[in-house]
Design a protein around this nucleic acid. Structure first.
Lengths: 112, 112
DNA sequence: TAAAAATGTAACCATTTGGTTACAAATATA
DNA sequence: TATATTTGTAACCAAATGGTTACATTTTTA
């Protein structure tokens, strides 16, 4: 694996990596502790951790033979900003729905 | 291409697809108009469009021989929510920085 | 009706991805 | 010191990805 084109969007495109992020956001764990949460092999997790480290989403604190992984999710802010620029696409729809429900509730004709 | 495991995270992991989204969010265009904005071939763009359509990020309105693509970015809301649950990871840092700058400005010792 | 335009898609290709097993290395423990 | 623990990584593999060219189809236009 050469791990090219590493960016935060690609990092979070894998569901396992998203779960790792969620786990580590809760509390730091060493690599084995992370691996134990998944049905796949430790080396596979090790690779995911490497990818997440490479794009700055987690930081490794070496402690003896253990590597403690902690979430450093600043760069998720970039994704947040990118998606938020399109917020109108779902909030408008939401508002329209709310409006509709409100009106429906207000002037609902008796179902006779 | 079998296009398996199609979800919004994977859809936006490709930079070309993110650009397509940005383009179409501005205004709908037919497939050729989209393809003309990129240095890659029309079939390549056609595949990207297909992927975006499959995961609901764009909608195709057929009009004669043309296919007008329009952005339907509701499902980006999912990504927004997912990232926002980790907001503290970058806003805290931001607050800390602001605080630091504010204090630095307030009580900055004269550099003598 | 013949030609042009817009698009889909098949067949192909190289690279990347995400997993595996096997082994090595460093550190901690009995 | 011998053994167990924690991790890295090499070598391998199948499938997915992102691109290409070539050709077919449908619709519009001259």
């Amino acid at each position: 694996m050469k791990e090219l084109r590493r960016d935060v969007y690609q990092a979070i495109s894998d569901p396992v990596r998203r779960e790792i992020i969620t786990l580590l956001a809760e509390k730091p764990r060493n690599l084995n502790a992370v691996a134990n949460e998944f049905p796949i092999s430790r080396p596979a997790i090790s690779k995911h951790i490497k990818i997440l480290t490479e794009c700055g989403l987690i930081h490794i604190r070496v402690e003896g033979r253990e590597r403690f992984c902690e979430a450093k999710l600043e760069s998720l802010g970039e994704v947040s900003e990118w998606t938020n620029q399109f917020k109108r696409f779902w909030t408008n729809k939401l508002n329209a729905l709310e409006m509709h429900l409100k009106n429906a509730g207000k002037s609902k004709p008796k179902k006779k």
